[in-house]
Design a protein around this nucleic acid. Structure first.
Lengths: 354, 354
DNA sequence: CTGAAAGCGCTTACAG
DNA sequence: CTGAAAGCGCTTACAG
C-alpha cells in the first residue's frame, strides 16, 4: 500500500549517506561513529524501515535462501528430515524454499533448475532417484549442494546418509534374539538408494543362503522388479517381499499374504510407512502382532512409537544427518562418519514395553 | 564457477539490444520480428542463458515466491495441506518458501516478517494462534495474504476453513446409529480455532445437557485448561477429554483412562494425531477397538485409512481448501461456501470394512 | 569516519 | 519493430 521505505529515505532523514546507513544496518563492513549510528537507528525505527532482501541479493549475490528438494513430502520420514533441515537453516539465518519431486526425476530436475534461477545460495537434495546426478546443474552454476539420505554415491555433490548396514544388522540380531532366525524383508520396488542397501545387507546377514541377486556395490542397479507383490525367493525361510513405499501398498500386500497363508513369522520392513501398512493389514486380517508376526522397521520416525502395537525400530539419526548436510553446505566440512541408528525395542518385535 | 550469462551477453551475441532479448524471453510486452526472435533464441540456447529471477524481481517488484507459514510441520494434516498448497502454487508457476511456527505465535510473527523482507508475492498462513492477527503486517506492506484452516475470524486476511460443524454432526450421527448416544470428545488444550469449533459443536449436538462452558462464538476464548488430562464433565454420559495435539499425549491419556476404568465406550477425536494416539494407547492397554471403544476422528488424513484398526473419519476437503486459499491470493475470489468433509466409515467405529 | 557514485541484471517507458 | 537509457534498492570500492 504505502510505498515501502528505502535506505535512501532513512539516509535523508538521518542526514547522512546511504553508505553509512548500510553500514549500521549490517553492522559493517566499515565502522560508523556512535552518534551517527544513533541517528540512523532512530530514523530507521521512526520510518519503520525494512531492508529489501531482493535488492541486497542482487547486489551482494547472496539471497539467504536455500532450496530443499524432497523425494516425497508426504512421507513422515522425509517430513522429519525436512523439519530438521529447516531448523538447521534457521540457525544459519537462512530461509528454505521447498519442492516436492513426488519420486519423479523429471520434476526433481525442474525444481533444481527453478531454484537455481531463483539464485538460492545452496541446495539440499533428498533425491527421488539415485541414478540422476541433478546436483551437476548446481555445480555448473557454482552453487554448493548436498545429497541427503539418497543420491548418487559418486555424484557432483557429497551424499550424507546414515549407516544403513548397521541398522539392518541390529534389526536382524534383535529378531534372532527373539528366536526368528531368518526374518523376511519388505523392500521397495527397486534395489537402489538406501533401501537397496538395506535389502542387500539383510540378504547378506540374514539370508546368506538365498539367491544373492545383484552383487553388492555402491549403486546397485538390479533389474527393476516392476511388479510389486509377493515375491518370496526360492530358499525356504528367507523371504524377500516388495511393495511401494506407501501404507496402502504394504497393507494390501499383507492381506494377500495372510489370505494366502504365506505370511512369514518375522519381518523387517525397509521403511516405517511400509511397517504401518503391515500393521494395518495384519489387524484387518486378524493376525496378531507380535504373537503371530514380529515386525521391526528401519526408519524409526517419531510416529512409530504410537502405532498399534508400538513399532520396534532402528531410529535413524535424522537430526544428525540434517546437521551434517547443512554444515557441509556452509563449509564446516568436518568429515564425520555416517551417523548410526539405534534400536528402540517396543512391542512389535515381541518385547513388552509397558 | 563460470560467471553467469546475462541478458546483455545474449544481446551482444544476437547483435541486438537487451530490451529485445527481454521481450523474446518474456514473450512480451512488445512484439519482436520473427527473424530477430530466432537469433535471440539461438544465442540464448548457445550460451545456456538462465534468467536471473532476483534481478527481475527487483525491477518488476514481483518475485514469483509465496510464503507458507505452518502451525506444525510434523502433523500430517498440516503436511497434507502444505502439499496441496504447493501443488496449487506450482500450477501458478510460483515457488514456495516454507516456515514452521511450531505453535509459537512469536515464531510465526518472525516468519511473517522474514518472508515479507524476502518480498514474497503473497502469504498463506496456517495459523498457530487464532488470536494473533499476523496478517496485518502483510496488509501494511500491501502483500495479499490468506489464513488457511486456522486464523482470526475477522482478521486482516480472509480465512478459508472447512465446515467444521458439519463434520462433527456427521460423526455424532454416525456414532448414534451405532447405538452410542453420548459419545465423548477429545479436544485440544484450548478452545480456539477449528478444534474449538469442533468441540463446541459436539457439545451442542451430542451433549446438550453438559455444562455449556463458554458461549459459542467466532473466537471462543475459554479459560485455558493448562493441565491436559482426564477432565470428564459432571453430566453422566457426556465426557469432555483434553490432550495436546500429539500422539504421545493422547496415547498417555488413553492408558490412564483405561487404567482408571473411566474410558468412555465411544469417542470423537478432534484430530487424527490424537486418534492415532488413542488407538496406540488402547492397544497397549488391551482394550479392543471398536468392540470396547468406538472411535471417529475429524481430520481424515490419507494415513487414517491404514491404522490398526482403520479409522472412521470425516475427511476434511484439504485439496479444496488449498485451492480456495490460493485462488483468493490470485484474485479469483469466487466467494465459495466452506467446503464440507465427508464421512468415511471404516472399522474403528464398529462398521466392518473388508 | 563519511559522501558521491558505480553497478548487480533485469524491465520498460521513451524515442526513433 | 528496435535501441539507448533510466531505474528497481541495495553494497562497496574510491576519494576525501
Amino acid at each position: 500500500m504505502n510505498k515501502p521505505i528505502t535506505l535512501a529515505d532513512v539516509a535523508r532523514r538521518a542526514g547522512t549517506s546511504t553508505a553509512v546507513v548500510s553500514y549500521v544496518i549490517n553492522d559493517g563492513p566499515r565502522p560508523v561513529a556512535a552518534a551517527t549510528r544513533e541517528r540512523v537507528l532512530a530514523a530507521a525505527a521512526e520510518l519503520g524501515y525494512r531492508p529489501n532482501r531482493i535488492a541486497r541479493a542482487l547486489r551482494s549475490r547472496t539471497t539467504g535462501v536455500v532450496g530443499l528438494v524432497l523425494a516425497d513430502a508426504l512421507n513422515p520420514y522425509f517430513g522429519a528430515l525436512a523439519e530438521h533441515v529447516e531448523q538447521e537453516l534457521t540457525g544459519h539465518d537462512r530461509l528454505m524454499l521447498i519442492g516436492n519431486a513426488g519420486y519423479s526425476a523429471e520434476r526433481q530436475r525442474h525444481l533444481v533448475e527453478r531454484f537455481l534461477a531463483a539464485q538460492v545460495d545452496a541446495l539440499v537434495i533428498v533425491s527421488a532417484d539415485a541414478t540422476d546426478d541433478v546436483a551437476r546443474h548446481a555445480a555448473q552454476a557454482g552453487v554448493p549442494a548436498v545429497y541427503l539420505h539418497n543420491g548418487p554415491a559418486a555424484g557432483s555433490a557429497p551424499l550424507v546418509a546414515a549407516d544403513n548396514e548397521h541398522a539392518v544388522r541390529e534389526a536382524v540380531a534383535h529378531l534372532r534374539a527373539h528366536g526368528h532366525h531368518d526374518p523376511a524383508f519388505l523392500a521397495g520396488p527397486h534395489d537402489t538408494g538406501p533401501v537397496g542397501l538395506r535389502r542387500l545387507t539383510w540378504q547378506e546377514s540374514a539370508a546368506p543362503a538365498v539367491n544373492p541377486g545383484p552383487a553388492p556395490g555402491p549403486a546397485p542397479s538390479a533389474a527393476p522388479d516392476a511388479t510389486p507383490g509377493p515375491a518370496p525367493d526360492a530358499a525356504p525361510g528367507a523371504v524377500l517381499l516388495r511393495s511401494a513405499y506407501s501404507r496402502a501398498d504394504a497393507d494390501a500386500l499383507t492381506r494377500r499374504l495372510i489370505a494366502g497363508g504365506v505370511m512369514p513369522r518375522a519381518l523387517i520392513t525397509a521403511t516405517d510407512e511400509q511397517a504401518v501398512g503391515v500393521l494395518s493389514g495384519a489387524c484387518a486380517a486378524g493376525l496378531a502382532v507380535p504373537d503371530d508376526l514380529a515386525v521391526i522397521s528401519l526408519d524409526g520416525t517419531p510416529g512409530s512409537a504410537h502405532t498399534a502395537p508400538a513399532l520396534t525400530v532402528t531410529r535413524q539419526p535424522v537430526a544428525d544427518m540434517a546437521r551434517q548436510a547443512v554444515a557441509l553446505l556452509f563449509g564446516r566440512a568436518a568429515p564425520a562418519p555416517a551417523p548410526r541408528a539405534t534400536l528402540i525395542a517396543r512391542r512389535s518385535c515381541g518385547c513388552d514395553s509397558r
